[in-house]
Design a protein around this nucleic acid. Structure first.
Lengths: 144, 144
DNA sequence: TTGATATATATGCAAATGCATGTAATTGTC
DNA sequence: GACAATTACATGCATTTGCATATATATCAA
């Protein structure tokens, strides 16, 4: 049988869920209050922006953002409708495609960042000093 | 202006989101694979079970589980339909109500725990030792 | 090659969530 | 006490997500 989680594990787990839920709710709420789309849109655009040619395959977005395939498909639908990205054929594999960030997508990234940044500082950055933050990041890394 | 988040904050934030998403997905998936309901149901039942009389007001569940009011209302609907809990009038405030765990609710808690426990150990407990887990719990506490 | 299996993405339908608003009871003010 | 404001919970409607399956292409085995 699998060994049992310690009490500490249970405590850490409960706090992981709650700290994340609380911070995410606060950030999403700040974004919405400024008229911005959900954080997931920012994540997608940022992943694309960081690529050499501003493109990624849906499959790769799925892996990086830990989303389900059908949700990626529909997220791309919605973002394409707003002209934030576009679908391109993928020559090397006829089943696949490429998703490319558009100028409007890049513009949205720039517009969202000041709000996102301030929100992050308010709800996360201000709660721990930098060395604690580094420690937290290192511990979380082990869960990945 | 609000000061800007450090790079370390941004790293920790990204990992908080991903570590939580990954672990939660794994745990929910294990629960579902064994035919159990979502984790939120367990959370509700556990909060009720821990109360002296097995009851809480919806408002209190909302606060503790960080859920939105309308979601609590509907979660209670669904769980009541499965006879896991029941709504009772709340004499001290005619607007409010009490939610009480039933025997079936207690039974479900017991049945879910072995699966939940093993999953937690697999996806969380096994990744850090106890003193790291304590450190993680302490850091996360500061975000709450 | 050809057929079987696997992979990448899309989609219909059901369930859950978000958003705005409704209803009923309570509290505060005069 | 009357009434305005607030609080607790519910609900209609739109959006999002989950689940199963469809479609098209690619890979592999004989």
């Amino acid at each position: 049988m699998t060994s049992k989680p310690s009490d500490m594990t249970i405590t850490a787990w409960a706090r992981l869920l709650k700290a994340q839920a609380k911070a995410l709710e606060a950030v999403e709420s700040d974004l919405k209050a400024k008229g911005h789309p959900p954080l997931a849109w920012y994540d997608v655009l940022l992943e694309l922006k960081r690529e050499e040619n501003g493109t990624l395959r849906p499959l790769e977005l799925e892996k990086r953002l830990l989303l389900k395939q059908h949700n990626v498909s529909r997220l791309i639908d919605r973002m394409e409708q707003k002209n934030l990205l576009k679908r391109l054929p993928f020559a090397e594999d006829g089943r696949g495609q490429l998703v490319a960030i558009t100028d409007q997508g890049q513009e949205l990234l720039r517009r969202m960042w000041p709000t996102y940044r301030a929100s992050l500082q308010d709800h996360v950055g201000s709660k721990l000093n930098d060395s604690e933050m580094a420690k937290l990041a290192a511990l979380l890394q082990h869960l990945l």
